[in-house]
Deep mutational scan, measured.
Amino acid sequence: MAEAPPRRLGLGPPPGDAPRAELVALTAVQSEQGEAGGGGSPRRLGLLGSPLPPGAPLPGPGSGSGSACGQRSSAAHKRYRRLQNWVYNVLERPRGWAFVYHVFIFLLVFSCLVLSVLSTIQEHQELANECLLILEFVMIVVFGLEYIVRVWSAGCCCRYRGWQGRFRFARKPFCVIDFIVFVASVAVIAAGTQGNIFATSALRSMRFLQILRMVRMDRRGGTWKLLGSVVYAHSKELITAWYIGFLVLIFASFLVYLAEKDANSDFSSYADSLWWGTITLTTIGYGDKTPHTWLGRVLAAGFALLGISFFALPAGILGSGFALKVQEQHRQKHFEKRRMPAANLIQAAWRLYSTDMSRAYLTATWYYYDSILPSFRELALLFEHVQRARNGGLRPLEVRRAPVPDGAPSRYPPVATCHRPGSTSFCPGESSRMGIKDRIRMGSSQRRTGPSKQHLAPPTMPTSPSSEQVGEATSPTKVQKSWSFNDRTRFRASLRLKPRTSAEDAPSEEVA
């Protein structure tokens, strides 16, 4: 009796068929016929556990003709996506030579605008209408194809895939403007070719909807975003200037109206006075309405000098805001240009540092100066060695804690006790272990408590650290204090090793 083939788990290929790579489910599931010992083939499952149809090819690079078809379809799909992405970037994010197409579109729109203006002049109306009709045909074809291509290429973005995504893309403001202008152009052409009475009025009214094509030149909205950011950044200043200017306008108009309503027919109503105030304070000055009385002229002159300053403030605020924003954008561009080279330089330096163990090129690091100058660790070890030599091999803490019996001779020589300023008595072995921070803190506390006492003391002649007598400086308080830590004499004296002298005989010792 033939044995059933062993159940295979995992992703390994079956024996005897090495080139074939078959994806098997996580659990080997066989058909009921196979479990019962029949000759049925096992049921194939996909990666998600769903059964595959009987005629479906197995996924994998070596699955025969199905694999070749899959490779061809995958390559075609990649080319399709690449083309779609390229078209989308050309239309929505132009760079380099892609601006040539947008310059061509701008020339078409500008020519249409010029011809629309010439069509309103009686001398050039006939020729402009003929040229404009031909140009409209060209623009309908160009913009119609462009609109379709834009909607198709938007599928390269995830949020615009599918018919719902394309509809979302078509609802964008600039796409809506394109659609309105396209419909208006078709209506103008249809009305112009019919030759009816309505054609002339339709051409004159709907052609100027094509002015909206100038708005579509900035599809990404960079200028509007820049203007919005400047207004938002200086909103408080703008609101303040406009508010005060509006108050000056209504008060000036009302007072001039009261002064001129009886003697001047131009100011017969408050609305006429508001019109005069707006034209005057905005420095336009049509001259259609002028005050005639001396009181009205004085009020107009005073409020004009006051109001023009507030009406001119928004222009200066926006101008300075634009300058600052442009400078910030230039700085951001320079930062973006330098970020990648800086990151590459840091990575290269780290690779060199991690692979080169000698690091002989590091001549400006802490390790280099640590090898030249005595390190703080060596100074600490030197302090501890000196203290243990004086205390008979014991550390200062051990000397303080060691009990001394009554009447027993002390094995240590008597030492002079010292007192730290602002604290109780402490171990004499710690007097010379006072660090730089303690010395600086002690000097600052003395300056806070009594700076007036220092200038009363007789001035001391500054001497070099080499000429100081070591026996005289029994305490860190003898170090000359200065008002600034930048004094080199104080810094050098604080680094010197001060020996400890006994109370009975204080021989001067120098520590090399």
Rank of each mutant, 00 (worst) to 15 (best):
Y243H: 00
L258Q: 02
G192C: 15
H292Y: 10
R207S: 14
S73Y: 03
F106L: 00
E123V: 04
F322L: 01
P13L: 01
S116Y: 07
R95G: 08
A252T: 01
G62R: 09
G55A: 02
P5A: 12
E35K: 07
R213S: 00
V117L: 00
Y80F: 13
L47H: 11
M217V: 10
A128D: 04
L133P: 00
Q122E: 15
T193A: 01
Q347R: 12
P19L: 14
V183G: 09
V90L: 06
R207H: 13
Y160F: 07
A28V: 04
I189M: 12
V141G: 11
A199S: 15
I211M: 07
P61T: 12
L305F: 02
M139R: 07
A18V: 07
A263D: 13
R161L: 14
V114A: 06
G144S: 01
I134F: 09
T240P: 00
L305I: 11
P51S: 12
G12V: 14
A301S: 11
A68P: 08
V100I: 06
A128T: 09
T278A: 08
K172Q: 00
V87G: 06
V87I: 04
G162A: 04
C112Y: 09
R8G: 06
P61S: 15
Q210P: 07
Q84R: 06
P61L: 04
V138G: 02
R79C: 03
R171G: 14
C156Y: 02
A75V: 13
A187G: 09
G10D: 09
I121F: 07
S185T: 13
A199G: 15
I197S: 14
G55S: 01
K236T: 00
A18S: 03
G39C: 13
A343T: 08
V100A: 08
P59T: 09
H77Q: 15
P59A: 10
F110L: 04
L58P: 10
P54T: 05
C69S: 03
Q125E: 06
G10A: 01
N89Y: 08
A76T: 12
Q194E: 03
F174C: 13
V298F: 02
G38W: 08
Y232F: 01
W86C: 03
R93Q: 09
G55D: 04
A98D: 06
G38A: 05
W294R: 01
I180M: 00
G12S: 08
R7G: 09
M340L: 04
D17Y: 08
L127F: 05
A271G: 00
E130D: 09
H292N: 11
A4S: 12
A241T: 00
R82H: 11
L107W: 01
F208C: 00
T200K: 15
A128S: 03
A202S: 13
C156G: 11
L133I: 00
L91M: 14
Y80N: 10
A263S: 10
R166L: 10
G64S: 14
K261Q: 14
R43C: 07
V188D: 00
S153A: 12
D17E: 05
E3D: 08
R168S: 03
A21P: 11
I189S: 02
L107F: 00
G40V: 10
Q210K: 00
R44H: 07
Y270F: 02
S74W: 07
G39D: 02
A76G: 05
S67T: 11
P59R: 09
K333R: 07
G70R: 00
V114G: 08
C158Y: 08
P19S: 13
Q327P: 02
A187V: 12
M139I: 01
G55R: 06
I105M: 02
I197L: 00
G37C: 04
P19H: 03
A202G: 14
V103I: 10
M206T: 00
I148M: 14
N196T: 00
G38E: 10
L11V: 03
I177S: 00
S111I: 10
I239M: 09
M1V: 04
W242C: 12
A312G: 14
S201A: 00
R166S: 05
I211S: 00
T223A: 00
A36P: 05
K78R: 04
E22V: 08
R8P: 03
S119P: 15
V100G: 08
Y147S: 07
L115V: 08
G302V: 09
L108V: 03
G12C: 05
K172N: 01
A36S: 05
L108Q: 08
G195R: 01
L135V: 02
L58F: 06
R93W: 01
G222A: 15
P5H: 14
M214L: 12
V149A: 08
F174V: 15
A4T: 14
V326I: 00
F251Y: 00
D17A: 10
G96A: 03
S41A: 03
T27P: 08
S205C: 04
A170T: 09
K261N: 13
A2G: 05
M1I: 12
R72G: 11
A68T: 15
K236Q: 01
S63C: 05
G70A: 08
I134T: 08
L345R: 14
F208Y: 00
L26P: 06
A301V: 07
Q327R: 15
R81C: 10
L306V: 10
H77D: 11
L209P: 00
G39S: 02
G62C: 14
K225M: 09
R171T: 11
V87F: 09
S67A: 04
V29M: 04
A233V: 04
V138M: 03
R44P: 12
G192R: 15
A187T: 07
I177F: 15
L47P: 02
N129H: 04
S31I: 01
L26F: 07
P42R: 07
V29A: 09
P14A: 07
R82S: 06
S119T: 11
V117M: 15
P13R: 09
F254L: 14
F99Y: 12
E130Q: 04
E126K: 01
D218N: 00
V142L: 08
G228S: 07
E123A: 07
F99I: 13
I346L: 14
M217L: 11
T290I: 05
T193S: 13
I121N: 06
E3A: 11
S153C: 06
Y88F: 03
T240S: 06
K78E: 15
L313V: 15
T120I: 00
A28P: 09
A184P: 01
F143Y: 00
P51L: 10
S116F: 01
L135M: 15
W294S: 11
F106Y: 00
V29L: 07
P173T: 00
G64D: 08
F174I: 14
I250V: 14
A170G: 08
A190T: 11
F310I: 04
I211T: 00
V141L: 08
I197T: 10
H330Y: 11
A36V: 05
I148F: 05
P42T: 10
P94S: 02
A98T: 03
F179L: 03
V138A: 11
F208L: 04
P5L: 09
I121S: 05
P13H: 03
I177L: 11
D17G: 04
G10C: 07
Q194K: 03
V215M: 01
G64V: 09
A304S: 06
V151F: 10
G38R: 09
R213H: 00
Q210E: 00
N196Y: 00
I346V: 04
R219G: 00
A252S: 08
Q30P: 06
K172T: 01
L203Q: 13
T120P: 13
G62A: 14
A190S: 08
A154S: 02
A202P: 15
L113R: 00
A252G: 13
A301T: 03
L145F: 06
W294L: 11
S119Y: 04
L313M: 15
L23Q: 09
R95H: 14
D262N: 04
M214T: 00
V231F: 00
W163R: 01
S50T: 03
D178Y: 00
Q71L: 11
Q164H: 10
I180V: 07
T200S: 14
L132P: 00
S67Y: 07
V183L: 08
G49D: 01
L52M: 10
A263T: 04
R220L: 06
V248L: 07
Q33E: 12
F303C: 04
N85T: 06
W163C: 06
T27R: 02
G34A: 07
A75T: 10
Q329P: 13
